[in-house]
């Protein structure tokens, strides 16, 4: 043995052992993903290609193309998701900005209040909105006593109610990454901008906003994707007037016991979601190439 391969075999074995250990640590997670994700999704694909008579057929997909109502459902789903995302941005971005300018201790307190809704169940929060927004609910009573409007108006069991509830529930998903990105912006950037002659508004739009967009995009994307498959809130607050893909899936199973049709809807929703994510990731990567992400 020459001096150059001194201990070489032993060191190589150590390296292999280390990798094995790492794999061992991640195996429960890999197993979990396999069992609860890969297998059911595979099953979903399989079932979607089974017709009513139990043989292989494309009828579940054909139905989606032929019937107008399906197109409308997909359109509604995208519309509600886009509106929710847009409203979340309009409300969440200023909120995140405000929080990012506060001293750390107070900002953390605000952050807890933003996260507070997570401590109660989704269903409870949704029904709470129903109570508040219904015809003789608190909102209507107060508005009338304040003279904002005369008659009780319909705020729930329609698109408005759905949006109010969904925005409320989705807001933290937008605020958190946006706030994180804003916190990471060095304040010296804004000082430098001011030093070179930028008014506060100019400095905000030319420096702060572009640097906060990676967080904003990440949050908006998360909200949008979560909205695409959202069920509980639109079902309760939409009052049957806002029908999203998830609700059609449920009615296909509960009403018509048609697993094939439900699965096909699921598959299409999955593909659309993946497409959105793929488009967004290309867009975000472009953003990074121009130096936006860091």
């Amino acid at each position: 043995m020459t001096t150059t391969d001194m201990n070489a075999a032993g060191l190589k074995r150590d390296e292999r052992l280390e990798r094995l250990k790492l794999f061992g640590l991640s195996s429960p997670a890999i197993l979990l993903v396999l069992v609860i994700l890969v297998i059911p999704v595979g099953w979903l694909f399989y079932v979607s290609f089974i017709g009513a008579d139990g043989s292989f057929s494309l009828e579940n997909y054909e139905r989606m193309i032929k019937r107008k109502s399906y197109g409308r459902i997909f359109l509604t789903t995208f519309e509600v998701s886009l509106l929710t995302t847009g409203l979340c941005i309009l409300i969440g971005y200023p909120l995140a900005y405000f929080m990012s300018q506060l001293p750390n201790r107070i900002a953390n307190l605000c952050l807890i209040t933003v996260l507070l809704p997570f401590w109660t169940s989704l269903l409870v929060r949704t029904y709470a909105w129903l109570v508040l927004l219904q015809k003789n609910g608190l909102v209507n009573k107060w508005a009338i006593s304040l003279g904002l409007w005369d008659e009780p108006i319909k705020i729930v069991h329609n698109l408005n109610g759905t949006l109010i509830g969904m925005v409320h529930i989705m807001l933290p998903f937008l605020v958190l990454p946006t706030y994180g990105a804003m916190k990471a912006i060095d304040r010296d950037y804004l000082k430098a901008a001011a030093n070179m002659g930028a008014s506060p508004a100019r400095a905000f739009w030319t420096v702060f906003f572009p640097l906060s967009t990676p967080g904003l995009f990440a949050g908006a994307l998360m909200v949008f994707v979560l909205c695409l498959g959202f069920f509980v809130t639109p079902a309760v607050l939409g009052g049957g007037k806002v029908i999203m893909v998830s609700m059609k899936i449920v009615s296909n199973i509960e009403l018509f016991v048609n697993w094939g049709a439900a699965s096909a809807l699921g598959v299409v929703l999955l593909i659309l979601t993946v497409a959105v994510l793929w488009l967004a990731s290309r867009f975000l990567k472009l953003e990074q190439m121009t130096g936006g992400g860091h």
């Binding site: 430098a192 030093n195 008014s199």
Partner: peptide
């Protein structure tokens, strides 16, 4: 500051990463 018209080099340079 934005009306003072002085140039400044910051300790950490503060170059805009975007």
């Amino acid at each position: 500051p934005h009306l003072r018209d002085v140039g400044m080099v910051f300790q950490n340079y503060a170059l805009f990463p975007h």
